[in-house]
Structure formats: C-alpha cells, structure tokens
Simulated assay, not measured.
Amino acid sequence: MKFSSKEQSDKHKKETHKGESFICEICGKVFVHRASHFSHVRSHLPPQYACDSCDYRTCHKHDLIKHLRIHTGVKLYQCEHCTASYHTSSNLSCHIRRCHAHERRHACHLCDRTFYDRTKLNRHIDTHNDIKR
C-alpha cells in the first residue's frame, strides 16, 4: 500500500497490524517489524560479503562496511561527554548508558541486583542456580 504521509502509514499500521509479529521460520525468533524480520532471514543465507583483511563474512553489505572501520581505525561516533569514540553507534550508546547515565536496565527476578547488560545478568542468575561456567 502507498500513503501520502508517514502519519497515515503509522495510523494504518497501528489500526490494521496491531500486535502483529513476524516469526523466522528457520530459528523461531520473533520480530515486531517486518523489515527487521526480513533482514534477519537474510542472515541465514550464505554470506556474500567478505573482509579482505580477515576471515569475517556477512550477508549484509552494511555490516561489512561497519566491520571495515575496525581495520581502518575510523571511529565515527564521538561521545559528547568525554573523549571516547567508537566504530558503531550501538557501542557509543552502550558507553553512554554505562559510563554517563549509569543505566542498569537488566534486573534479576530473584533478588534486587541490576546489571548494565543481559550477559552479566545471565551469569548472575547462574549463581542462583549453582551453575558454574
């Protein structure tokens, strides 16, 4: 469908596709947005973009472009609070949440501890279950 404005498109999505989700038929991962689902499904295809400097391979051209910054040393994303800079915007966002906003978005459901990232939370939950990694 085509819409004359983004507002009309958004309204249509809310009214017609409310609560709709998209599931990957290969791994079962669930997505709220069709575009995210489409992009994810491509990740199951054989990689067609390869780095000339290492063995990194991907099926998304934009991922290779981001990866190449590691080899060139280009860090496009500068923290506005300090001198830190990063190869990707997601790394900068994590830095700001952790170092400047002190956000701990991941809470343990078994005690009152909170963590900056899900990986640390999962390791913590393992301690409640006497799991040693």
Rank of each mutant, 00 (worst) to 15 (best):
K66R: 12
A107V: 12
G73V: 02
E15G: 06
R42Q: 15
L121P: 02
I125Y: 04
H100Q: 05
C111A: 06
I96H: 00
D55I: 05
E20R: 15
K18N: 08
E103F: 09
R105I: 00
D55E: 11
K13I: 14
S89K: 13
R34E: 10
L45C: 11
A35C: 12
E7V: 14
D52Q: 06
A50M: 13
K11N: 12
S43T: 15
H40V: 01
H109S: 11
T16D: 07
H81Y: 14
H95D: 01
N129F: 05
R57G: 04
H95F: 05
H81F: 15
C82K: 04
L68Q: 14
T127L: 10
H128S: 02
R123L: 08
S90Y: 03
S43K: 12
K61D: 00
S5F: 03
R57N: 08
H60W: 06
L92E: 02
P46F: 10
S39D: 10
R34H: 09
R105F: 08
Y56A: 02
F3D: 07
V41T: 13
S90I: 05
S21N: 11
H100I: 05
C108T: 05
H40I: 01
Q78P: 13
L76F: 09
A101G: 03
H67L: 02
K29W: 03
R97D: 07
I131W: 03
E103V: 02
D112I: 08
F22D: 09
L92N: 09
P46N: 11
Y49A: 01
H100A: 06
Q8F: 15
H87K: 11
M1F: 14
L45Q: 15
I70T: 08
